[in-house]
Every structure is written in C-alpha cells, then in structure tokens.
Amino acid sequence: MIVGNAKPIEEVLSMIEPFDKLIVAGCNGCVTVCRAGGEKEVQILASALRLAREAQGRPVEIREVTLERQCDPEYVELMRPYVGDYQAVVSIACGAGVQFLAEHFSKTPLLPGINTGFIGVTEKQGEWSERCQACGDCVLHLTGGICPVTRCSKSLFHGPCGGSVEGHCEIDKEVPCGWQLIIDRLKALGRLDLYEKLRPMKSWKTSRDGGPRRIVREDLI
C-alpha cells in the first residue's frame, strides 16, 4: 500500500488560515489501512482544526467526507455537487488523491493534510516500512525477492558495501542492510550462485527518471 503520515497540525492550520468554510476529505484506500487518511482520521483532523480555530476566535465550518478512492474519477466526481460551496479542500489521501481532486475541481484550492511516504508494508501495529520504489523494471527474481533499489541505501546492484555491519546498514543501526537480507535469502533458497553474477547498469528509463509515467492497456480501452 501507499503509506502516509499526518502533517503537524500547526502546518495544516497555517494552510487553512485564509479560509473559514472547508472540506476535509479522506480516502477508503491505502491511507485508511495505514491509519493516516481514512474516515476516522478525517473526524480527528476536522475536530482538531475546529477546536484550534475556535480557540483563536475564528471558528471554521468543516464538512467531513470520505471517498471510496480519491484516485478514481467516478468517486471523485461524487464531490462535484457541493465542492463549490466550500473555499478549500484539505485532502488526507496520498499525493495522487490530492492532485486528482485538484485536477477535477479547478477552482478549489487543494491542501495536503498528510505527507505521502512510500509503497510499503505493515511491520506491526503502528509501524510501516518501505518495499518498492516503482522503478518499472522488476528484478526481484534475481535478488531473492528483496529489492536492492529500495532496501539498499545506495541502491547498489552489487552489494553489500563496506559499511554493512552485523546486518545493519551504515546509515543507521535501525535500518537492516538490504544486501545482508538478499544474501541471507539467496542462501536459504540455495541460490548464492545468483550473487556472483555481474549485473549491467540499470536503465532508469522506466522509473521516474524517464519522466512522468503512464500505463496504457489497449485491451481495456
């Protein structure tokens, strides 16, 4: 899923400073699962904003909305009948959701209420970590199912670097060394032979480096 995290309330308050009639919009997709932008978080953020503004003597009217997904046009369009009645929308979906609302409602200011983090997994209650950088050309079959682009701090294709110590990365003892993970896993699979292969320079054309991306499926059009 796409994992996000709430922006500090002060930052959101400063964004909504010019407005007194708002929508706070959540999303039932990834951000609900990672507890950053679902219905519950919409309620929490809206209440916090109302209270803070009341304390400032400048009450704000907030409509709470949670769309099925902010990244699909049919759900986004459900907001059209009423969005014009409000001065701005604080979206707590991922960056794609915020932008999609902005694209659809050209006259309404869109304010991001969360920081979009990464494509990742739930490690345990309250802890998520990154797994994929969406490079567009998956190599996981060569690296024991562990991504060198994402899990190595230097995205090395021939790791580990000299900084790998006792399983952690040189940047931080809390960060597992991606290459230690790859080697452990190749070993478990009996495929250490894959380690000793030279890998050609990666083409980053399929990643964001090649420009904004698009997938077109003729079979579905």
């Binding site: 701090s153 230097k154 995205s155 090395l156 294709f157 021939h158 790791g159 670097c161 900084g163 040189e170 940047i171 931080d172 030279l198 890998r199 050609p200 320079m201 990666k202 980053w204």
Partner: peptide
C-alpha cells in the same frame, strides 16, 4: 567506489544519486 552515504556529511539533505554502483563504474 560507491562512497559513504550522504547521511554522514554536512549535506545530509542532498539527493542520493547512485545511478550506477562501483562495480558498474569499473566496467564502464
């Protein structure tokens, strides 16, 4: 070389390039 991660230096905000790694630089 691949180089120490920028987290160690004064410019830890810098973009981490690593387009290729040290072995690929050697081959290049």
């Amino acid at each position: 070389l691949s180089g120490d991660h920028q987290a160690f230096g004064d410019d830890s905000q810098a973009k981490n390039v690593h387009d290729i790694d040290s072995i690929q630089l050697l081959q290049l």
